[in-house]
Design a protein around this nucleic acid. Structure first.
Length: 535
RNA sequence: CGCGGGGUAGAGCAGAUGGCAGCUCGCCAGGCCCAUAACCUGGAGGCCGUGGGUUCAAGUCCCACCCCCGCAACCA
């Protein structure tokens, strides 16, 4: 039975190129997408760019573009090629300047309007005469413009449309209560709950056209343009046909997981569901057969990176370009590091020293070495082949050892699944490496405990069983890590003498079954998976 | 009293429902020799931010305080 799985990343601002932080979020999405494809689920992985921002205009000018669309095109291109170069397997890339998006936004706006949740009100903002620009609260120091502290700020009032978000307070609290899995990790739930309870207010959702150079016009009111989040959030729907293709929309919506960074948690966990609740009152496409509102299933929130302990900031210029990183390490290694090192949801530090440590210990010494010694011994003792034993007989360990055997691997598979469902790639990897009796570490221990290199001289039949067990375990490990490290997984499968392309066609059930490695099949000359780093 | 997260071995981190303080890396000493000077075993190293309190028993619960970090309409 196959399910559908729809995962999204935020749409990224195009006033800069991708850095390690946006890469992290996108990699997690890639991991989830790959994991679900492996399980046989129909999977849609969406990413894209947010192009209706005032900031883009400034960025375009700075980059020497005289026309905005050309700039947006070039930036969208950079984001797409970066993700492709890194091998990220997104299925669709939405740009909020696309027609399909505009149509969906318009339909959604009208629905919310029909529900009676859009009203006009006066909105006051600070205007700095020196900069000739509006300032947001956090751009000010001591209530003054830092660039022109001698000039008083002007309070400028304008009429804007507001979204009656406050009307959905109770519904949101109910949602959090009934669906604790809506926000992951749990620690974020409290934050949102208290925010909604205490500070969730109506949102201004438009600006006067004259003061906002880009953006989607408010339906039936050219004097106003739709502002930020109201437009941006809708990409998750418009990408799957909301407003343009009802059948497609029905197929994919609601999203199963929205992956985001902690900075935009309020919009995704509070404003977004409130918007949908409102629109659903007037648009039946947003209801399921039972009449319940089709809200996203969950929002998974990751923390931020520091680089060598320092906050990443565009002004500091310490953002790491992933394309530079892959000059030094294969991307799978980077993937492993950022996924494993940082407990999902927490802030984490990106340090090259630490990366090198992880590389040597986890990848070269534990994983690489295990595969290498297992393959090398089999080749050496069994004519370059997988030992010719009955897989059944190698299911369990030799007596007086700790190895958990096939049964344990099955449980490990389930553990990995469960962690990935909560985006906990860190815990999934940790459990593959250690903390149970069929991990990579225990496999290495099994070699010590059985000593196949000695055993082969006394009881070759037993050595054959041990080595088959190890090789078959490596096959399982390869598929387990494949969502996280797809290239390495493929290389391991190759070293086991199998064709990754052919294997990938098999069902998840077959891949996870004991005995997928054919006895007496040929083993190619092993190559070092991870050359050890030396100073 | 704006909101939230955090302060546990040299570094980085785990430690629902209170009960001998753990993991990874690094360091030291052994073992092994299949393997990428890799692997395995053992060891040293901790006033668990501070001060009170509850309890037979507290990183773990309560109170106060100190320090770090993030957020507060557009950086994942």
């Amino acid at each position: 039975m196959s399910n559908k799985f729809y995962v999204t990343t935020p749409i990224y601002y195009v006033n800069d190129k991708p850095h390690i932080g946006s890469t992290y979020t996108t990699v997690i999405a890639d991991v989830l997408a790959r994991a679900h494809r492996l399980r046989g689920d129909k999977t849609l992985f969406l990413t894209g760019t947010d192009e209706n921002s005032q900031k883009n205009l400034e960025a375009a000018q700075k980059a020497g573009f005289d026309n905005l669309p050309a700039y947006l095109d070039s930036m969208a291109e950079i984001w797409q090629t970066t993700w492709k170069t890194l091998g990220l397997t997104y299925d669709d890339f939405i740009r909020t300047t696309e027609k399909r998006h505009h149509q969906g936004v318009e339909r959604f706006w009208r629905a919310v309007q029909k529900s009676g949740d859009i009203y006009k009100a006066e909105y006051e903002r600070d205007y700095c005469v020196g900069c000739e620009a509006f300032k947001t609260a956090h751009e000010l120091t001591d209530g003054r413009c830092p660039l022109h502290p001698n000039k008083d700020l002007e309070k400028v009032k304008e009429e804007n449309y507001f979204f009656r978000a406050s009307a959905y307070k109770d519904d949101l609290l109910k949602l959090y209560h009934e669906h604790p899995e809506f926000i992951e990790p749990k620690s974020r739930m409290n934050e949102i709950r208290s925010y909604v309870k205490e500070a969730f207010e109506d949102f201004s959702i438009s600006r006067e056209s004259g003061k906002l150079a880009c953006g989607i016009p408010v339906p039936d009111d050219d004097s106003q343009r739709i502002y930020v989040w109201f437009d941006a959030l809708l990409n998750y729907m418009t990408a799957v046909g909301y407003g343009t293709d009802d059948k497609l929309f029905k197929k994919w919506w609601p999203a199963d997981v929205h992956l985001i960074g902690k900075d935009i948690i309020k919009f995704h966990c509070a404003l977004w569901p409130a918007m949908i609740m409102s629109a659903a009152k007037s648009d039946p496409a947003l209801l399921d057969e039972t009449g319940a509102v089709l809200l996203p299933k969950s929002v998974h929130v990751n923390g931020f990176f520091t680089v060598d302990g320092q906050k990443i900031s565009k002004s500091l210029g310490n953002a790491i370009d992933p394309l530079d990183l892959i000059q030094e390490y294969p991307f799978d290694v980077i993937r492993y590091f950022i996924l494993r090192e940082i407990p999902y949801g927490e802030d984490g530090d990106f340090s090259k020293t630490r990366l090198a440590e992880r590389y040597n210990s986890d990848l070269a010494n534990t994983l690489g070495n295990l595969v290498n010694r297992a393959v090398a011994m089999s080749r050496k003792y069994f004519n370059g082949r997988v030992p010719d034993v009955k897989p059944e007989d190698a299911k369990t360990a030799l007596p007086d050892t700790e190895w958990g055997g096939a049964e344990c691997l099955e449980i490990l598979w389930q553990t990995v699944d469960r962690y990935l469902d909560a985006s906990r790639a860190d815990l999934a990897l940790e459990s593959i490496w250690s903390s149970n009796d069929c991990s990579l570490n225990s496999a290495n221990r099994y070699v010590e405990q059985t000593k196949p290199f000695k055993l082969v001289k006394e009881e070759p039949q037993k050595a054959a069983l041990v080595l088959y067990t190890l090789l078959e375990a490596c096959r399982h490990f390869a598929w387990m890590i494949s969502p996280m490290m797809p290239d390495i997984a493929r290389k391991i499968i190759l070293q086991l003498g199998q064709d990754p392309k052919k294997e990938e066609q098999k069902s998840a059930k077959d891949l996870r079954q004991w005995g997928g490695l054919a006895p007496d099949s040929e083993l190619p000359e092993p190559a070092i998976l991870f050359p050890r780093l030396t100073e």
